[in-house]
C-alpha cells in the first residue's frame, strides 16, 4: 500500500525565527496522526503548510491524488489545488467561527461544498445536509438556524459535517476540542473516532492535549522549537517516552 500523504524536509522560516524545520512523515489511508507539542512549537505552522495556506521555504508535500498517484502539491495549478481542498480534503478550524459561514444557515454551511462541486438540486442538497447533521448528532430540524444559535460544541460538530459532506479522504484538524468543556469534548472525541473508523478517514490532528492524542491517534509526532523530536506509535511514545522533552510533556499531565 502506498502512503496517502508524504511530507519531507518541510521548512518554514519567519525571518530569522524558525516556524518549523525539516519535518517529514508519511500518512497512510485511514491513519490518524497527532502532532503534539507546546504552544509555539510549530504545530499550527505545520498544519498551515500542509493545507497549502502557507508556502513552504523548502521541502515537498506529496498527496496520492485519485487516479494520479503521489503528486507534488506545489506542482498543482491553483484551480486544481482549490478543487482538491474542497472535495478530497477537509480542514477543521480550532474556532468553528473561522470555519463556518456565520451569516448563513446550518444547511447552507453543510451544503456549500456540494454546491461548489456542482450540485444544483435544492431538495437533494437539503436532504444530504440533514443526513449529515444527524450523523454528527445535531437535530436535523434545526437546519435553517444560524450557526450562532448553536452552542460551541454543536458549532464544532457542524463544522465537521460541513467538511465531511464530500467524503474527503484526508482531514486536517487544528485543536478540534480546544475551548470545549470536558463532557462536550468527550462526546466530540467519541464522534470523531466513530467517523474516522466508519469512513476510513486519514487525519492529521494538531493538539496540545495528550488525552486527545491518546484516544484518537494511531501515531504521534512530538514537536519542539519547530522540529520533530520524537515519533512513533501513540501508546509507545506516551508510555515509554525517549526524548527528555516528551518525558516532560507526559509527566506534566495532571492526574485527577
Amino acid at each position: 500500500m502506498n502512503p496517502l500523504l508524504q511530507v519531507s524536509g518541510l521548512t518554514k522560516r519567519y525571518g530569522a525565527r524558525i516556524g518549523c524545520a525539516d519535518v517529514g512523515f508519511s500518512l497512510w489511508p485511514g491513519e490518524v496522526l497527532a502532532v503534539v507539542g507546546e504552544s509555539g512549537s510549530g504545530k499550527s505552522t505545520l498544519l498551515n503548510l500542509l493545507s497549502t495556506r502557507l508556502a513552504a521555504d523548502a521541502g515537498t508535500i506529496e498527496y496520492a491524488l485519485l487516479g494520479r498517484g503521489l503528486t507534488d502539491m506545489a506542482k498543482l495549478s491553483e484551480a486544481e489545488r482549490r478543487w482538491l481542498l474542497r472535495t478530497d480534503w477537509g480542514f477543521v478550524e480550532q474556532n468553528p467561527r473561522d470555519g463556518l459561514r456565520m451569516n448563513v444557515s446550518a444547511g447552507a454551511n453543510v451544503g456549500e461544498r456540494l454546491m461548489a462541486t456542482g450540485a444544483r438540486h435544492y431538495g437533494q442538497i437539503r436532504s444530504t445536509a440533514q443526513d449529515w447533521m444527524a450523523r454528527v448528532e445535531l437535530d436535523p430540524a434545526r437546519i435553517d438556524e444560524l450557526p450562532a444559535q448553536f452552542s460551541g460544541g454543536m458549532q464544532q460538530r457542524l463544522q465537521i459535517a460541513r467538511n465531511l459532506v464530500t467524503k474527503p479522504r484526508l482531514v486536517l484538524m487544528d485543536e478540534p476540542t480546544a475551548g470545549l468543556d470536558v463532557s462536550v469534548q468527550a462526546r466530540l472525541l467519541d464522534l470523531l473516532r466513530e467517523l474516522v473508523t466508519s469512513f476510513g478517514l486519514a487525519a492529521v490532528i494538531v493538539t496540545h492535549d495528550l488525552a486527545v492524542a491518546r484516544l484518537l491517534a494511531h501515531r504521534l509526532l512530538v514537536m519542539k522549537g519547530g522540529r520533530v523530536v520524537e515519533t512513533g506509535l501513540t501508546d509507545q511514545v506516551l508510555d515509554d517516552p525517549q526524548h527528555p522533552y516528551t518525558q516532560l510533556l507526559v509527566s506534566s499531565i495532571l492526574q485527577v
Partner: peptide, 16 residues
Amino acid sequence: LADYGFMHVKLYEDIA
C-alpha cells in the same frame, strides 16, 4: 478560477 459555487449558497439561503 470561475469558482462561483458559493453564489448558490446565497440562493439556497433565500429558498430556505
